[in-house]
Write a protein that binds this DNA or RNA. Structure first.
Lengths: 343, 343
DNA sequence: CGGCCGCATGTAATCGATTGCATCGTCATA
DNA sequence: TATGACGATGCAATCGATTACATGCGGCCG
């Protein structure tokens, strides 16, 4: 272990200011409890020593780390990094640091990781719906009764605090839009789900199709990976079909980008030959050719609302409390990647 | 402050296993120092109590937070989020948590923020070249002699540990490629810099132009913002010119995307009327229309190398050490957004 | 058989900040 | 002048884990 010039402690400040450390502590946290003269001496001593509070010692004493943990399936995805952006910003404003856990879902060493993160954070912001929620209940972080706010995916009957978007309605409205354009042959690249998370998005798709009296053809349903690769794979499968859907609903924008790109390379034009609709409205969606029709997710707002909720719980009164459930509205953004089906 | 079911401590485990807390601690950190029988009793007690180590208390005692801080200018940008991805992954593997600080650069409350972050992290990974380095020297984090690894931008003579890419050569090679295509009228959308960071990228551009015997026209140099908006603004300015450059070097891919998109909307074709080259090779670059020619930055590797360097310093022997300087190679990725100039 | 060694374990100090309680001095009031 | 109140400050315990040092025990060797 390296040896550093040791940082000044509150004792050092106390010595310089010729008071006890208790007085220094009070001067820093509740100045009105200290006489003006002493306060000035202490301020001066703080500056001359270059003292900064040791957060670790403070956390130990106060039993609050002033840190939250955010679990994200994939930071590299702009969808999540925008959320993270908002979370870090708002948490910092309220004096909290943000620890990032990436790709916890599906990690067989989850137990270890959890051991690793436990007791470092006061609460958990869970954006990773690929985490197995039953396993989650067993984790020290959760069993330690630390507040947990779940986001990004809905678990209908779980008594948890949640912030999400109106996934089901969003998908229904996206598919409804395709139907309205005249499409009857509609496929989808769905997002991955875990056994215990019945995706609202799947349900929304099925519901919209049913309502329109359209069949769901298994060979028109692809499994995506929330990344460009999944869209490419779906496109290759699409190209190999005898009878092809004329419109495709994609689980996120990356998938749509991969799909459209691969078709273009094969000489198939979007939207003339196939309409594609994405989900999220990432920054580049508007600037693609064709510009991507998509369901905008209020990502920034999700981050803000989830952070505010978690910190309010952390700083609020103890005791039972009905779980909060915020539902944010998605918005259909119509651009150039969708059109009427070919004649 | 909320009141939670308190997590079991090492004392609780000791009581259940009928040993002292010292023995429990030893059993957990150096099992060979404890007899087999006791070790088993302790393991059992750990499981039955659901004990997990309190990292805060541990950090206080060991004077190591097992946490690093990463300062990033903009998490929302895929360039940085990919780096963050790698950093979080590798740090976790070596037992370190990652705290994220976003947009510290240009923040007038930097001092406060620093006060806030000081003593929570063992070291700093600085990817934010927009931070004022002189001010940085005054920060407790740095003065406390915590290791600092600078990345993403070069400060030629600073005695700091650095990980960067061959920025100057990369830009030279990008511009050289445009020259090779026959372009003589070349403009640029440069990235922002701070007064004390002489951007190697600027230098590379100037050098390449000089070498080719081409003038740098001030009205062909735009200031970007590392985002799509900057590219759009540059495009609007470009459209208004009487004499236009036929090729443009952009400081990053987002800028190029905004530029190309805005021109397309104005009916100007890339690359037929103007060639555009980006920088970074973000994931979508390949899937745009036209696919973007760009200088690929080894982002993932940058994150890995910087993390490894910082952690090696943290865990290595104390004492003076010549600063490390890693330079990673960029790679020109030729795609469809560049072509010979119009006749 | 005595002394010494080494293993297993316990005791208590330590890391740095916070805070309940004790103390001291000052001032106002009876 | 005595007494009580109050403001300012110090003392010392506390948070939970680690570890140097002390202790006790069994076994081995001379």
């Amino acid at each position: 272990m390296n040896e550093f010039k040791k940082t000044p402690t509150i004792q050092d400040v106390a010595r310089v200011a010729q008071v006890s450390s208790a007085t220094v502590s009070r001067a820093l946290t509740s100045p009105e409890r200290v006489s003006e003269a002493t306060r000035e001496r202490i301020t001066e001593a703080v500056l001359s020593t270059g003292y900064t509070v040791n957060q670790v010692a403070r956390s130990l004493r106060l039993r609050a780390a002033k840190t939250i943990l955010i679990a994200i399936p994939n930071i590299g995805n702009p969808f999540y990094s925008t959320i993270l952006d908002a979370v870090v910003q708002d948490a910092a404003e309220r004096g909290y640091g943000v620890l990032v856990a990436n790709r916890l879902g599906g990690d067989p060493t989850l137990g270890l990781k959890d051991y690793f993160y436990s007791n470092r954070a006061d609460g958990l912001l869970l954006f990773d719906a690929s985490l197995d929620l039953e396993a989650l209940q067993d984790l020290p972080l959760v069993r330690g009764n630390r507040p947990l706010v779940l986001s990004c995916d809905d678990i209908p009957d779980a008594p948890l605090d949640m912030v999400m978007t109106d996934n089901r309605e969003a998908v229904e409205s996206a598919v409804g839009y395709l139907v309205g354009l005249g499409h009857t042959k509609i496929g989808t690249v769905r997002s991955r789900t875990t056994p215990n998370v019945l995706s609202e998005r799947h349900a929304g798709f099925e519901q919209a199709m049913q309502r329109a009296g359209l069949p769901i053809r298994p060979d028109w349903v692809w499994q995506g990976d929330h990344a460009i690769a999944g869209g490419i794979a779906a496109a290759e499968s699409w190209l190999a079909l005898d009878e092809r859907p004329t419109a495709l609903f994609c689980g996120n924008d990356e998938t749509a980008i991969g799909f459209i790109s691969r078709l273009r390379r094969a000489g198939v034009d979007c939207p003339r030959e196939v309409s594609v609709i994405g989900f999220d409205d990432i920054a580049v969606a508007e600037h693609l050719a064709p510009a991507l029709t998509t369901m905008r997710q209020p990502r920034h707002q999700m981050g803000k609302v989830a952070t505010a909720l978690l910190l309010d719980i952390l700083e609020g009164p103890a005791g039972e409390r009905p779980p909060a459930r915020h539902v944010l509205k998605s918005e259909l953004i119509i651009r150039a990647s969708t059109a009427a089906p070919p004649a």
